[in-house]
Each structure stands twice: as C-alpha cells, then as structure tokens.
Design a protein around this nucleic acid. Structure first.
Lengths: 206, 206
DNA sequence: CCTCACTTTGACCAAATGGTCAAGACCACG
DNA sequence: CGTGGTCTTGACCATTTGGTCAAAGTGAGG
C-alpha cells in the first residue's frame, strides 16, 4: 500500500493521471454522479488499481479539492495592498475571469461541492479561504475608508466578483444556449462588461 | 396508472406531496445524488407508491423543473418596458434577490442541473428562457441606445444579475461560513450592496 | 539475472438503488 | 352495501457500484 506521499516514479505518474481523470469526471457529474468505473476508464487504469493508489472514492475527491485549493485562491492572494486600489481590484476580476476561462472544470468542481453544502471542504472554507478573505476584506475596507474607492461592503464585493466571473464557467451550458456564439468569445465580452461594471462601482464618491 | 394530469383529490394531493419532497431532496443532493428512498421517506409515501404516480425517477425531476420554470422566470417577465429604466432594472435585481432568499431550494435545483450541463432542461433554456431573455435584452438595449441607462451589453447585464443574486442561494454554504452571522441578515446587506452596485453601473453616461 | 518490493488485475462481494408485480386496502357511487 | 376502479404496499429483481483479495506481472538494485 503506497503511503500518502507518492515516492516512486510510477506512483507520481499514476497519482497525477488519476487526479486529472477524476477532475474531468467529478466536475462533470458531481461527487455522487461520478463513478469509479468512469474515472478508471478516463485514466486508463483498472478500478482496483485506482484503489491501490487511493483508499476510497471520497479520498480521491478530497485529494483533488485539496490540491486545487491553493491555485484557486491564488488570484485573491495576489491582491496587493500597496497597489492602486481600483486597478488592483480590476486586475483581480480579470484574473478570476481568466481562471473561469482556463479552468472551468476546477470551477465546476467547487461549484458542485458548494451547492451541495460543501460536505467535503467545510474545513478549508472555514480555514484558509475564510482567513484569506478576511485579510483582503480588511485591505479593501481600508481603501474604502480612505476614500480611495467607493464605500462598499468588502465581503459582498468579493462575493459579487466570484459570482460574476465563475458564472461563465459554472453556468456555461446556460450562457452558451442564450448567447449563440461559436467559440468562447463571450469571455472577451464578459471581460469588457465586468471591467466597466466594477470600474463604475468602485469609482470613489466625491 | 394515473394519467399525466392528476384527476382525483388523492392524486392531486399526492402529486403535490411528492414534488415538494422531491424539491427538498433533489436540491440538496442533485439528481444523481438523490434516491427514491429519500424522496419516499421525505414524502411519507412508499417507494412503489411514488412510482405509481410518476413512471420513473427522472420523470419526477423533469416534472419539478417544468413546474418551477414559470415562477423562476417571473421576475424577469415583470420587467416593464414602459417603466423607468434604472428603477425597473433595480426592481428586477431585488425580485431576484428575494427569490434567492425565499426559494433557495428552487435556485439550487436549477444550479445543480445547469452546472452539470443542463441534461434535462436544455429544451426549456433554448426555448422559453432564451425567448424571454432575448425579448428583455431588446428592451434594455433600447434604453441603452436612448441614453437612459449606461451603455452596457444587455445579455451580460442579465447574467451579472443572475450571478450576483443566485449566488446567495446557491453558494449559501460558503457565504455562511465566511460571513459569520446568525440568521440570514446577509440578504439584507446584499440587497443594499447590489442596489448601490447596479445603480452606479446603470447611471447614464453624460 | 535474481530477488524482493512494487504494481496490476480478474474474479468476486455486499450494499444500494431504480423499478416491477401481484395482492390487498380503500373509496366513491349507484 | 356491494362493486369497480383507485390507491398502497411487501416482496422481489436486475443492475450498478464502491470496495476486497489473492495471484500474477514488473522493475530496479545488488
């Protein structure tokens, strides 16, 4: 039985392969909707082999969420307290939108998990996510109180950024059916729209 | 076997009971995650009895989505082309936020369905939903071109309203863990925030 | 090239799950 | 009441699914 940390070349490779396949399957069907057989098929490994590397289905799911959490938080982490307030927040919006464009599977993975009550990442949300958000909310609150941006509730500002950007990944099926567009050019349009939207709402009160 | 349209008193009552229970279960676990046993338990009926009223699990799900679609679209339907543009759109935002507050299960039901590619409501999205959105987008475009609101892409405006309001229902688990608040007062805060946000972004260009 | 730990898998299992069915309970109505 | 349709359910079934296991295959270091 391989230990939690992969040691050998083969273990590294297969761990990777499994998580990649699992991302595909879990993000499309949710935890309950995904089956080990699907993941096995997608990864090119046999089902017992999956369970040689991970002790259970839920452990694969948890490993995935854990592994992706850091990257997921990175755009907010990069928000720089010493930069120009409006430009920092706008840059954050665009980073999030780029994440939605480049990593829709990751976005949907988290969306599925949270819509169903976050049974497997409650800890991480209450832990590192909340800590980071609290930290950055303080920064934004500072900007707000200094009159460098409009007076807004920093938490709801962050929620509105998450909502509007992730929407294009999580609800892609709906967006695509309403805006008939070949390719994903609606991400570009969304970028223009969100840029104007948040710039307007952040402009300092006189 | 009862026909598609319930006739007798008992059929009406049980149809209702089943759909109510199914809403609870499907919205919490998604289609695949929900089981007939759970719905049976929640409705107080036996599993075979469920299948006496509906031919299959998926038919319950579809009946639910169909039944709720009209109410779901109602807030947008009420957007009045002859009203004051800014106030009409703001009123729409608040109606949507109220829906998220009052009917979070419905919101999550749709969220679950769409995140997973809308396998059961593709028709309705491409049909009545798209038709309604196209219609109202034209109205907003008219306002925009007449200079009565800022120059915004009406489709992305609508998406941003959906995203920001439904976020509080769909991602409630996350919101709750980040804003530690007893009760649901964050809906009130969200109302204040969104009101200011959209008012600012819609203010006509000079 | 041998050995031993690492890796892989076919066969299998128990539980869960969507669905069926025949028989019985119930209800409305003449 | 009694009768015919409506409603309900215990028992059952086939399939799916997460997970096990013993045995066979493979690879890296001595």
């Amino acid at each position: 039985m391989p230990s939690k940390i992969p040691r050998t070349r083969i273990q590294k490779k297969n761990h990777e392969t499994i998580l990649e396949a699992a991302l595909d399957v879990f993000s499309r069907h949710g935890f309950r909707g995904a089956t080990l057989d699907q993941i096995a098929l997608a990864s090119g490994l046999s089902k017992p082999n999956l369970l040689y590397y991970f002790p259970s289905k839920v452990s694969i799911h948890r490993a995935l969420l854990e592994r992706l959490m850091t990257n997921w938080l990175d755009p907010l982490y990069k928000l720089n307290a010493n930069g120009d307030p409006v430009e920092e927040i706008l840059a954050y919006v665009l980073r999030k939108l780029d994440m939605a464009r480049e990593y829709p599977r990751e976005s949907r993975l988290f969306a599925n998990e949270i819509v169903q009550g976050a049974p497997n990442i409650a800890d991480q949300i209450e832990g590192e996510l909340k800590a980071l958000v609290d930290d950055k909310a303080q920064v934004i609150k500072g900007w707000s109180e200094a009159g460098r941006i409009a007076n807004v509730d920093p938490y709801h500002l962050i929620f509105s950024i998450w909502a509007t950007t992730q929407h294009y990944a999580d609800f892609d099926a709906q967006v695509r059916k309403i805006i008939e567009t070949d390719g994903s050019s609606h991400f570009d349009d969304a970028g223009v729209f969100l840029n104007r939207m948040f710039r307007r709402m952040l402009a300092p009160d006189i």
